[in-house]
Design a protein around this nucleic acid. Structure first.
Lengths: 347, 347
DNA sequence: TTTTTTTGTTTAATCGATTAAACTTACATT
DNA sequence: AATGTAAGTTTAATCGATTAAACAAAAAAA
């Protein structure tokens, strides 16, 4: 079983020339390097006959470019990130880039470890969905001149390239939508986090209520910890529906919060939307299949992924290109879960 | 901004020794190579002072090992594969391996391209969820002595390592469960495919009916094409419920089929389980959140992923280790969607 | 004192590909 | 005939790390 890989040298020997010629020919530099016609032809023939495949490691070591990009996300088993990852993979492949994906579990330390592993593997650049408390790490990348683009989340105090959703606007839209549907006690369940994207979602919600002259009942805004999501979502909902000013609708600030929330709402046998209207961030099959299809904010996943790759590749090609900061709009997909109150069936 | 990477040579120069010594010390070979005590200490200090990070490319080129494994799956945005990918990533990381994931979209040609890209990038081995018509490619890998483990799907005619679910048994269990629940017209919607795992799911279903002396009504077994899943699932369901021997229950052979099927069942306003009982392969949040929680076959994702990594790494360490073929059992998680007929509420 | 052994360190080849520079011929120009 | 130019090819350094082999100096054995 001939298992040895074919190298440039093997071809060179077989053709009776030096490896230099082979390299020139196989890289299409026959013209500039004035390689003889017949010899070029011969080399090509031998190469395809032996099914030569260049060794990327050697190429990369020499060139300093691996044509690999690192994608750091929170968790590949979360559909939001899985979808993004797929888009990034496809888009990168179009330009001959390979993607290495790593999950950080929203932990700054894990993310940092990941970045370092990937840096040692000489990835050319990063697309990063950053975690809380990782601002200093991002700053560090910047100082080291390692090319990266932040995706979905960014740090307002840090001048970096990024591609993200306009979370303020999205959340504002959700709030206004519920107000216009006649809901008056609108709650928001978000993560307890200093991350800008989360603060923006909260800010949008607040502004929507303010603009419609609603009081900001502090009991309607719940922030739960990622690490203890299951329990704390339950507590949040319990508190929201048990006070005298109980909510008639809830906005979930992420897909994960919605899943947990809906499970509990099912347990409580609350009916959507008559007992509780729902709007959620994220998109997923669950929202279609729920007995009462869920109104959600559809983020422009394809565009987010695609654009982040484009930005990064542009930066890799020309490191001095200006900084780009791109905000995209989410789209509110209205379904029955936030049906206008006037349309509720009287039970 | 000093952006240059630190190399062995930089340390050597600073310490006033050759690169060989530095290499020995930093690889813990000071003893075997009898490096002087003080010089060893000095080298270590300088290395950590300069925050030296070895260049993996160079290491790999020299050693012929990249500590990278390629994971070829159908689609990372499918939760089944996303979950597997996560397990594989974590398990590989424990042993210092990095995973490169690629999606084949169930297309043999895409999978083949992927394999070749990854081979050129010198991955040490593969974990592969193979596609239809890719048997020849797998055979080719085998002939080239490229280490791999098949995951979730395998080819009975091909002697290879694999880790998979006992699909026959899983499907059989699902069938028996419905029979015992008093269902008499049990349908199966599967993919039209020659893949062994799919044939096994069909065989299990058939055997379950046979063993309980049911006729195999050909109208109850539908095979739909992956490329046209949405339409053909609808047609399949239409046909199954419109004949005079209409089905009272359906087994979906994959998660994707179930999603499409349930959407249509909702459209038709059929009630689960009174109009139609449901059992599905796969696991996902949807099944919990559906108004009538769905009975499903829970595949041992963690074990599948973990074991496939273990097998592969074992093979990488010792290429002459014997072939391993591992079948794991799926577990039927019973929920309301397949409630015994005797318990249905009379409407 | 001479020889052998031990200890400590350097040299140089290697992995596979790239590429500037050097080197041969052959051909053209004066 | 002498010189210049173009065409075609090879040499050798390089990327960064590893490691067998060579080497030198000091210590031990004869």
């Amino acid at each position: 079983m001939n298992t040895k890989k074919i190298s440039l040298k093997d071809i060179a020997v077989k053709a009776g020339v030096s490896t230099a010629l082979v390299s020139y020919v196989l890289n299409g530099k026959e013209k500039e390097s004035r390689v003889g016609q017949e010899i070029a032809k011969k080399i090509k023939e031998i190469a395809s006959e032996l099914n030569y495949q260049p060794n990327h490691l050697a190429k990369s070591l020499r060139s300093g470019k691996t044509h690999t990009i690192g994608l750091v996300i929170a968790d590949i088993s979360n559909p939001f990130f899985a979808n993004i990852a797929r888009v990034v993979e496809d888009e990168a492949k179009k330009s001959g880039y390979t993607v290495i994906i790593g999950s950080s579990d929203e932990k700054a330390e894990k993310a940092w470890d990941l970045l370092n592993v990937l840096i040692n593997r000489q990835v050319d650049g990063f697309i990063i969905v950053s975690s809380e408390h990782s601002e200093s790490h991002i700053r560090h990348l910047k100082e080291r001149n390692i090319p990266f683009v932040l995706l979905d989340r960014h740090f307002p105090d840090l001048q970096t390239d990024f591609v993200a959703t306009n979370n303020y606007k999205a959340s504002y839209d959700a709030g206004v939508h519920l107000v216009e549907g006649g809901y008056e006690h609108i709650g928001l369940i978000a993560y307890k986090s200093d991350m800008y994207h989360m603060r923006e979602r909260i800010r949008g919600y607040r502004q929507a209520l303010k603009d419609h002259h609603f009081d900001l009942n502090p009991n309607w805004l719940k922030e739960v910890r990622f690490e203890n999501i299951e329990k704390e979502v339950k507590i949040a909902i319990d508190e929201m529906i048990s006070s005298k000013d109980k909510v008639d609708s809830i906005i979930f600030a992420t897909y994960g919060l919605a899943i947990n929330g809906l499970k509990y709402i099912n347990e409580l046998k609350l009916k959507v939307p008559s007992d509780l209207a729902i709007v959620s961030f994220g998109q997923a099959e669950v929202f279609d299949l729920y007995y009462c299809p869920i109104t959600y904010l559809k983020q422009p996943l394809e565009m987010l992924g695609k654009t982040s790759v484009e930005l990064l590749l542009e930066k890799l090609k020309n490191p001095d290109v200006g900084m780009k900061q791109i905000l995209m709009e989410a789209k509110l997909i209205v379904r029955d879960s936030s049906m206008a109150r006037s349309l509720h069936k009287i039970s």
